[in-house]
Design a protein around this nucleic acid. Structure first.
Lengths: 267, 267
DNA sequence: CGTGCCAGGTGCCTT
DNA sequence: AAGGCACTTGGCACG
């Protein structure tokens, strides 16, 4: 652990309005990320409108134009602006006002600070690659590389096939030679997934003519959907994420142990 | 603007491992929000798995058990844990490890710091109420208070009516006495909205017996949906958000000027 | 507490 | 730029 403070990190405790404004402008000009802890109110005008009175919060301004306002509770920011926003910093009487807006869609967030307790500004270097495994995409890839994960004698014909009504995850031929359309869901498949699959099959029937088999492939089927599924002549099949993961790892190499439960036992 | 630093705010620049650990534990025990700027790697195991190598990021630990890891770019956190998570802080050689996990669903985020540049901890007071206007909910309310916004001679019967297949936004009777089901969308109504409305109507037909009129009420209709709408015997009607807003304001009192464009012109 | 559905959804990818 | 769709979706309201 390094003992010396990063020279690129600037910290201002309870800065004056002038100092804060200068730090904000300079930080953004230099491509730094800025964090503010203070008391502020928030107004948002755009796709909707929102109002939030004064309170103590954390504000993050990112160099790419993203803005986040976090309250002391909750997972998601109470207000925000996506990357690409234009920032504007100014003084208004004894308050500091930050505007963050963009033109498409036309929207603006206004922060009004009547107190800034802390302002931190720093250039952050982060080039690491983020990788997420076993999402729907990966289940599909696992099936492509090991079709027997779906069914003995199954062959994949196409993946991500565009049809008039959307995108079919996977199309193949089963051991009896039937065209099979597979709709993949990572978690529970709901009524919407069933309807989606039905649409795809109807579209394909219009194209081809022969009967088409439709299968929902997911970790489970939401309660109440079995009836709908039956009445539409569709099937549900459970996917085993662990075996998909192993199939992917076989292809990609690398391993990841499941020591989750152990940690939860130890606390 | 207050000139004195908040006594509740603790700031540690490049703290030693011992100091950082102590600050983390004490901060959480006291119900404070903690922000860390440093170099760390992140691993997530749970509903999916993810891996992120070392890089400089911002971490927020909230007193309600929410955890956020923000990279210097992008609107959304690269990793997180929702409120209610259990935190665990420990030393591992020359590194600091923070675990944040929960049991339902079983998932865990592990942060491994090889450097902490800044650690801030503070109790934040924020009791303000957040209010958001003119979403779908508000359009519905506007129609309830001024049904003629929809159509001359229209009367509302129920709002948010539960039907077997979901929730109908609005049910009423038009000037010709026909039962009318209205599906509201704030923005563009897509194919899904049309299908949803169809489901509702089918459900009601099963109940009642008389013909039911179905109307999509939105700011616009997605391209390619008009045909589907026609073939199902449904209608589309444009909603005027401005008039809805005015109707709401008339009821609620208070006003909000549209000075968005002015700000965008001035920059 | 699960279940369904909206969201200022966001992000990613393709035409 | 627009459309389609998944998401560690999150969030809320209701059974």
């Amino acid at each position: 652990m390094r003992l010396y403070p990063d020279l690129g990190l600037k910290v201002f405790q309870a800065p004056s309005i002038g100092v804060a404004l200068e730090a904000l402008k300079e930080g953004f000009r230099k491509g730094e990320l800025t964090i503010i802890i203070g008391r502020l109110s928030v107004d948002y005008h755009g796709r909707a409108r929102s109002k939030l009175g004064f309170g103590e919060r954390v504000v993050i301004l990112k160099p790419d134009g993203a803005l986040l306002v976090h309250r002391p509770h909750g997972h998601s920011p109470v207000n925000w602006q996506p990357p690409g926003s234009i920032f504007d910093f100014k003084r208004l009487g004894e308050k500091i006002v930050i505007n963050a807006g963009r033109s498409n869609p036309l929207e603006k967030v206004t922060l009004t600070f009547d107190r800034i307790d802390l302002l931190v500004s720093s250039r952050l270097r982060d080039d690491a690659e983020f990788s997420l495994y076993v999402d729907e995409h990966d289940i599909r890839d696992a099936l492509v590389s090991e079709p027997e994960l779906f069914e003995e004698g199954f062959h994949v014909v196409t993946k991500e096939k565009r049809v008039p009504s959307g995108f079919v995850d996977l199309i193949g031929v089963d051991r009896e030679g039937r065209f099979t359309v597979i709709e993949i869901k990572k978690g529970l498949a709901g009524r919407d997934s069933v309807i989606q699959l039905k649409r795809y099959i109807d579209g394909l029937k219009g194209e081809g003519g022969a009967a088409v088999r439709g299968v929902i492939l997911a970790s489970g089927l939401a309660r109440g959907c079995q009836g709908l599924l039956d009445s539409l002549g569709l099937e549900f099949k459970r996917v085993d994420p662990r075996r998909c993961y192993e199939a992917l790892m076989k292809r990609r190499g690398g391993g990841l142990q499941l020591e989750l439960s152990r940690w939860f036992i130890s606390s």
